[in-house]
Amino acid sequence: MFGYVIKRAFQMVLVLWAVSVLVFVMMSFTGDPTYMMVPLDATEEQIAQARRLLGLDHSHLTQYRLFLKNVLQGDFGRSFVFRQPANSLILERLPATLEIVFLAMAIALVVAIPLGVYAGANPKRAGSHAVMAGSLVGISLPGFWVGMVLIFVFAVKLQLFPSSGRGPTQEVFGIRVSFLTWEGLRHIILPAVTLSIGTLAILMRIIRAEMMEVMRQDFVRFARAKGVGQRGVLFRHGLKNALIPLVTVFGLMLGDLIAFATLTETIFAWPGIGKLLVDSIYRGDRPVIVVYLMFVALMFVVVNFAVDVLYALIDPRIKIR
């Protein structure tokens, strides 16, 4: 176990380092962000001064060295645009993103589990075919387009939900959340549903496949033979075992949700880290992009680590090495 943690930690540092190198190399292709900050009539000296203020007056290599040095002291650099520490910008907007990501995941689970179990247990029924076709459509849909259509129907035409933005927020343990009021919920529903569609469809397929697999296993047949009722077989024996592999895809699902949140947040003007990333890309704000990517990478490594540990706890046959 200890060796495993060390290995994982090493891997994490490697990933973070690779990300930072990659971002620095790639960003050297883009234009010099200084030109966006200074007025169009700026003279050479004024541009040079702005560059100095932004820390862009060194070579890329030196900039990278300085960056690494500062990171080791906990300083991840300052946004060119906001002139604030980039990590505090990310942390400030993180709750908004986590809010829709977790709500989307909850929606996906609540819908996908019963439908997946049904389709897996009765693979021949027409309803199961409908579920499968539906899930395939879900995978084939461009998520951002679904969001647009939802806005058009539910916000513009029916005026049931607001078309964008985040509702009023309350502070809970120092974190600003918006799902505690009705107005806040009204704002979060459309983006969360949009975000959940892809995950929901994939989840449904996985659960169905696992269910079919489990239902063929001996212990389910024994349970049936012992006279356990259909529902008991399905949920106590079937689902429980079908869910174990689900734990492993949790990390992947979370990653996808965070990635697609960039699109969802852009469409719904949701003030989370995804919108911040897209805005920062438009503005050439490298420090924010670096910190965003490093942060997301860190999150995945941690989640995957947790998943591995959890998996070992659930399924004693697996040893963590």
Partner: peptide
């Protein structure tokens, strides 16, 4: 395989988005 591992720790949309933002 290390490169593949690192790449897999990111959702592909995010990686592609980042690359495109640098390429134009």
């Amino acid at each position: 395989m290390r490169i593949a591992d690192i790449q897999l720790s990111f959702p592909s949309v995010l990686t592609a988005l980042f690359l495109m933002s640098a390429f134009g």
